[in-house]
Design a protein around this nucleic acid. Structure first.
Lengths: 177, 177
DNA sequence: GTCTATATGCCGATAGAC
DNA sequence: GTCTATCGGCATATAGAC
């Protein structure tokens, strides 16, 4: 609660993200969020009509972060290198911001949030297959990355790292294209 | 509530699965489950010490169902055909029992439940790569299937089906092995 | 724009009688 | 093995004063 203490939708979302990454979405109640913002719970409703709209705002920020990370990491790389770099960036984001990533990938986020991600993936795939709207291969790569991110987070791979599994698989896929 | 009305852990789990698939895990409270079983909520605690153990029981049943479906569908198929068939069976189960599949894949299910799934996938992959313990490729395939299943369920692929994307990708991957 | 007070509902879990 | 009664807590959201 810095001294200027200006409450805006943006500051609320930022505070929410901080708490979210620490304790998960389910632990983020209106009361604790309001307290962290220096106000009381009912005051939040002056900025967001309900909880769903707050979560949409959070998801939009998360999508933008992930998108920017990928675009920045892949600039000026040749197509295949860009794919490897995008995959690594994607997985790192999902790992380092796992609760935020979970929220972004929930069944009903804002439609635009996931759409932005889709377009980002498409831009990575298109130069490789030389198809500007390669739906099938974009689906394939996104499914692979999302599945790997969540299974790794859940500990489903066991203690063994499985760290290079994705790289090996991607190489095989590229060879077989 | 059939007339014999014998309550056992198994009948409770079966009732829970029915309700779960209709309304999701979050809507499955001890009260509504008990009512569907023809008893009152506190009586459930005679069979399961807490909610977590109930969910473990449910996850175990789900894992067994999925495992059996895959094994049965792939019997006597040559390795690559078996992979295609396993993938299709996996995705169908995740689609037709989406709430149950969600529960199975949650961060903290019984450790054994997901391990059974892992071993099933391993048995599909091993004959293809001729490596009896091919961790890397099993990770790759499982991540692909899980990611595809969840993204499809979330509607992340948009209206366009993306139905053959997985098959096309798998073919490329097999060629590149 | 923030507050107090409250409505209304949900949850998991326990104690103890029968 | 099932019940009634209850504990203690959580949540989202609204009404109305200041």
């Amino acid at each position: 609660m810095p001294y200027p203490s200006k409450t805006t939708p943006e500051t609320i979302i930022q505070t929410a993200i901080t708490l979210l990454e620490q304790h998960g979405n389910q632990a983020l109640s209106t009361r604790v969020l309001a307290e962290a913002c220096g106000i009381k719970a009912p005051s939040l409703y002056k900025y967001f009509p309900d909880r769903a709209s707050l979560e949409q705002g959070i998801a939009a920020v998360a999508a933008e972060q992930l998108e920017n990370n990928i675009i920045q990491a892949c600039q000026h790389l040749e197509p295949k290198k860009a794919l490897y770099q995008a995959a690594q960036t994607y997985l790192e984001y999902a790992k380092n911001h796992s609760e935020l990533y979970d929220l972004l990938m929930q069944p009903q986020p804002s439609e635009g949030a996931q759409k932005a991600l889709w377009n980002t993936m498409l831009q990575i795939i298109a130069p490789i297959t030389k198809n500007p709207d390669d739906t099938a291969n974009t689906v394939f790569i996104w499914a692979l990355l999302h599945g790997y991110a969540t299974l790794q987070r859940n500990g489903s791979f066991g203690a063994s790292g499985a760290s290079n599994a994705l790289l090996v698989g991607l190489e095989a896929w590229l060879r077989g294209l």
